[in-house]
Amino acid sequence: MTVTVRKTPITAALQGRRRPLEPAFRVVLLASLAIAVVFLGILLAYVVSEGWGRLDSRLWTNFPSKLYPERAGAQSAIVGTVYIIGLTGAFCVPIGVMTAIYLEEYASREHWWNRLIELNIQNLAAVPSIVYGILGLGVLARGLDLGRTLITAALTLSLLVLPVVIIAAREAIRAVPGSIRQGSLALGATQWQTIWRQVLPAAVPGIATGTILALSRAIGEAAPLLLLGAVTHITFNPESVTDAYTVLPIQIFNWIKQPEAEFHTLASAAIVILLAILLLMNSVAIWLRNRYEKRG
């Protein structure tokens, strides 16, 4: 993942006659990068050093305990988080990508309803997550009688991140050169074959990146899930999608609020676990991207 500056004619020409502003601009850019990297570094160093004492197997082999902080773990929250992210991905990726394909490849912008749909999706991406929580509680948990279960949580988070997935997938599909489509169609492929065999594989890197960003948002959400009845103390793993559950952000929030210092250490250790899961997801996205970029 190194970024190399390619020698294009423009950069070559610019190197000939450097202006005094050029190095300054470069410093500004580097400083912007440094802000992001330094803060991430500080955060990582802080949570790792705070949680170091409890960063061991107890964290993922044990269940939470109020009585015995030294025995407490976050297994139910880790399993809950993995379940929720898996289910959310399973719901929102197919729906999001199919929506994007429709909007990019089939829908005509001349119809007002298509423009309305687009506008709506863009607006939905900016709606606060708690609003989705209220929606999930009213429609899914109570209206459809799904209750305060894993499936309700996963469906609500799917709705929450769907606009982001759609927007990212659309950008990726749009970036596929039109010549590829035309070539495929000229060779006699149907529109469906063109999309499935040419456009989608070429768009996978972009879709994967967008999806991971969306799921990363979902993994850190606590507000809508609190409303949807994720419980704060749970000593069993969910066995089916209709079980009660908790997730890491809620477990962390709960531990931080406890008066005992041991739980604060545990919270930091759980943050490290949450970051590790995020990193794992990101690596999958990078792997997917590299795989498809090579093919293309």
């Binding site: 109020k66 419980v231 069993f236």
Partner: peptide
């Protein structure tokens, strides 16, 4: 009140390990 109910649920589980007692804080 959650700490009370959490402690109650943990102590109860020492006697009845198969009963599941999730405690929420809404």
């Amino acid at each position: 009140v959650a700490p009370l109910s959490t402690v109650a649920s943990e102590l109860f589980k020492e006697e009845q390990a198969r009963v599941q007692i999730p405690v929420g804080t809404s």
